[in-house]
Amino acid sequence: METLLFFQQEVIPAFLKGLRVSILLILPSAVVGLMIGTVTGALRAYGNRGVRLVADAYATLFRGIPLVVQLFMWYFGLPYFNVYLNPFAASVIGFSLCSGAYHSEYVRGAFLSIKRGQLSAALALGFTRLQMVTAILLPQGFRRALPGCGNELIYLVKYSSLAYMITCIELTGEAKVLASMTFRYTEIFFAVGLVYLGLVTFASWLLQLVEDRFTVPGFEHHEL
């Protein structure tokens, strides 16, 4: 009874507040991350040597450094260069750039798996290079990249929980504050785990809908 009351009066309000911040962090990071990843992935697959080198370096750097360290750099490091970001902005930038680096890998693989002959066929019909990209490469690359990119979006839901390390108090942050005030770590973090599980399940369901929507023969799941 007492626990129920505690949850009703303390935990749920705090979680709702935190959840709102989490979602505000996740949505823009997902969108910007995907955009960065698509462009970088395309450049890594089809760019000339110079462009590819820069894009590869970006991916290596942002996949190689732990995300927490990246967040620290954006929030605590930039002030040395007289750039001051608020915790929210620093988090979104950190998440987007890290997520974009991972997306670029999935996108690159998807583009490279498209048979070159189709590109020749498009050019032979009189397509410009841009038309070839928008009409043939992107629609196919998108379908092939979906499972990988979806996976990355699910990671993003969970690594949004690092934002509290740079004082952007989202779901995990709220939980931590409440737990240290009440000393009821077990219940609170168990509950937080469930909320993330719920978020991820919802995101997976959405992604499955998108995959089903765009599936065509030849790109479907193979049931063996």
Partner: peptide, 29 residues
């Protein structure tokens, strides 16, 4: 690009666009 439109090409391995049905393969050009 204008020249290529006037010179049709048929490939050994067909090179149809995999994400489009037969009708759309023809329509897209």
């Amino acid at each position: 690009y204008a020249y290529r439109q006037q010179v049709g090409m048929i490939f050994q391995d067909f090179n149809l666009f995999d994400h489009l049905c037969a009708l759309d393969n023809i329509e897209i050009g």
